[in-house]
Amino acid sequence: MIDRKPGEADRVDAAGLQAFVNRIVSEHGGEELIFLCIGTDRSTGDSLGPWVGTLLEDRGVSGVLGTLRIPCDANSLPKLMRTLPEKAVIIAIDACLGRPESVGSFLARKGPLVPARSVNGGLEAVGAYSIEGVVNENSLKPYWTLQSTSLYRVMEMAEQVADVIANAMRVRGDLRDSVLRRFAR
Results as ranks from 00 to 15, higher is better:
C72L: 15
G111I: 13
M81S: 13
G104S: 08
G49K: 07
R82V: 12
L48T: 11
D58E: 15
C72E: 02
S47T: 06
R99M: 11
G98A: 09
P100A: 15
S47K: 05
E101A: 15
K79H: 14
N75F: 15
E57R: 09
L77W: 13
L55N: 00
T67V: 08
L48D: 06
G63Q: 09
E57V: 08
S105T: 10
S76P: 00
C96Y: 08
S47F: 03
G66C: 10
L84R: 06
C96L: 04
P85W: 14
P112V: 04
R109Q: 15
D94Q: 04
T67F: 08
E57F: 00
S105M: 14
D73F: 14
G53Q: 02
L84W: 09
T83R: 14
R109N: 10
V52C: 07
S102I: 04
V103A: 12
E101I: 05
L65M: 15
R59I: 06
G111Q: 03
P100N: 10
R99T: 07
A95C: 04
A108D: 06
R82I: 01
M81K: 12
V64P: 05
S47Q: 08
L55F: 15
S62I: 12
C72D: 02
P85S: 13
V64H: 08
L55G: 03
L56Q: 02
L56H: 01
P78W: 14
P71M: 09
G60P: 08
F106W: 12
L55P: 03
G66L: 11
R59D: 02
A92P: 01
L107R: 12
I90C: 06
L65F: 13
P50M: 07
G63M: 09
A108E: 04
T54W: 09
A95S: 11
K87F: 00
D58Y: 10
T54D: 03
C72G: 03
P100V: 09
P78V: 02
G98R: 12
L107G: 05
R99P: 06
C96V: 09
V64G: 09
G60V: 07
V89G: 10
P85A: 14
S76N: 11
T54E: 04
I70N: 03
S76V: 11
P85N: 03
V114G: 01
G53F: 07
L55D: 02
L48Q: 03
A95L: 07
V114A: 13
A92C: 06
L55I: 05
R99F: 12
A95V: 06
D94H: 04
C72T: 06
S62Q: 12
E101F: 12
E101L: 12
P71H: 02
V52G: 05
A95I: 03
P100F: 15
T54S: 11
P71A: 11
P100D: 15
P50D: 00
P71L: 13
P50S: 02
A92T: 00
P85Q: 05
V52S: 02
K87I: 00
V114K: 04
P100R: 13
G49H: 05
A88T: 05
R69C: 00
